[in-house]
Nucleic acid binder design. Structure first.
Lengths: 292, 292
DNA sequence: GGAAATATCTGACTAAAGTCAGAGAAATGG
DNA sequence: CCATTTCTCTGACTTTAGTCAGATATTTCC
């Protein structure tokens, strides 16, 4: 496939460049691993576990790296008062200065990439990089089933309700406690979209009859909008319905959610008569599921 | 600068992905260095020196890596019959199979990047990647002075003449031997454009009077066209003229080279009367050099 | 034909990056 | 309150990726 070939060629070209970046990180007489770790320490301090997780380090290795940075006077380690097994890492003034030096190196390298280009080439490059980054972000979002009562699921649903409350002119009251109560019955499903593990969207399927299910709680976090997540969630929910032997899905929506309506129409939904007494619903849609 | 920030953000995002690619290369129980070397062996065989050069390896290190691949049965080593100090590396059947396995891994990884995207997103991603790659290629091209009698300079000039011969309806004869004979006088300059060390363009500046120089031998290799190399060469030659205290540059061109004429006009040249008896010239241009 | 240059190989080393098996301290669950 | 779990640290080890100084064979230059 031509596109696969283009991606591989792109990878090769870009790895070449990022290699230069890594080399520049060695310009300060410190191994790359140390520099990377220094970069991951958050301004307000981090706990070791989160650093380890982000960089994928072994506990012993991380401990030693941190000790090295500590003896260099770049970070300070202290026990977390809330849980004294944990230790908190903070940057010292020297550490902050060192990080700024690394930042300056990176900035210089980025600027040197732009330097030979004309103004219009620079603009094109930056625009294309933004596009690649956005689409790689979209591609990194994974959709998978999630227990409806998990912390992440509840966080998504709460975010969804919070947003409805902010957008509906008269506010929004989830009524029966909100969290849908029981875990999904047979044929139901709760899906969650994650970006690097972080939940950024959800959608639920609730059977409402012999052959019909209702799609509910479709929500995408602001940071993940415009990436086609809602489209993918909808398609995944339809697939789930299909696999449970259902032949029709319905959903309702509020007039203020115009993007949602456009999405439903584009996905082949057509408007039908009111089928429930949801006080927040203004439009009702259905879609008959083919064998796909 | 916002664009520098975008580049750094892009680097971070892309390094994450290409890291995944390198990890996938480890899936075949062989260190990355070995796999990379296996990849660099050309289908028809390579000599060790060129492999070393492309991967930047120490001679001892390369020797050991090759030995490892040889004992694995992936490559065969034999002396170059033309120069028995040299050794030639060829892939064995097993080596070829192994390389195909790596190729498949890369293809899978690239395909998995595309899989979650819609058709239009895929098209956008591939287009943006092509754009980034093209512009990074443009940014990698460096322009620098070159002795006019170096092998690379002569290769460029010969390519230039070859192209003129192909493009001019009546062919082209460089007349006085072509290679401009003597090395540049004072105030003259020969510039060469290189992509990863390979020459991909040239341009010369010849003083023709007290305050004037002529621009000659402007050429860009086909592989580097559309990247703004000619524009940069022209600007660099003008800079060279300016630094020699010259205030005016002139040049001539043939009617078949219409891209060239557009470039000259855009760079602020205006057409003047014939100033030489070059039988291949149809148009003559000049530009007065401001202090910049 | 001999000296110098070139291409590769060998041996001896090093630094970086990481793995693994516990040990010790603190928190948590029943 | 005791067993289990969690979090970090330590010591001992390995692999990868290299560097450097010659040794050796061959070619090229004069």
């Amino acid at each position: 496939m031509a596109s696969v070939r283009q991606i591989r060629s792109f990878n090769r070209a870009v790895t070449h460049r990022t290699g230069a970046l890594e080399d520049s990180y060695l310009g300060r007489g410190r191994p790359l691993g140390h520099a990377r770790l220094l970069f991951e320490v958050a301004p307000e301090g981090s706990d070791i576990a989160s650093l380890r997780e982000r960089l994928g380090l072994d506990s012993g290795y991380a401990s030693r790296l941190l000790r090295a940075l500590e003896t260099e006077g770049l970070v300070a380690l202290q026990s977390d008062p809330a849980d004294r097994r944990r230790r908190l890492v903070t940057l010292t003034d020297r550490g902050r200065a060192e990080r700024e030096a690394y930042d300056a190196l990176s900035d210089d390298l980025a600027a040197s990439l732009l330097a030979p280009l004309s103004r219009s080439q620079r603009e094109r490059l930056v625009a294309a990089m933004t596009e690649v980054e956005t689409l790689m972000k979209a591609a990194s979002i994974a959709i998978m089933p999630e227990p409806e009562d998990s912390a992440d699921a509840q966080w998504c649903v709460a975010s969804y309700f919070g947003e409805l409350a902010a957008r509906f002119p008269g506010g929004f009251d989830p009524g029966d406690g909100g969290y849908a109560g029981k875990p999904a019955e047979t044929a139901g499903a709760f899906l969650i979209a994650r970006l690097h593990g972080r939940p950024v969207g959800c959608g639920a399927l609730k059977p409402t009859g012999h052959s019909t299910a209702e799609i509910k709680r479709m929500w995408v976090a602001p940071e993940a909008r415009g990436l086609g997540v809602a489209r993918r969630l909808l398609a995944a929910l339809e697939d789930a319905a299909r696999q449970s032997g259902l032949t029709r899905v319905v959903l309702d929506t509020n007039r203020t959610l115009s993007e949602a309506q456009a999405l439903y129409r584009k996905a082949g939904y057509r408007m039908i008569e009111r089928y429930n007494d949801n006080p927040y619903a203004d439009f009702w849609f259905e879609k008959t599921l083919g064998p796909e």
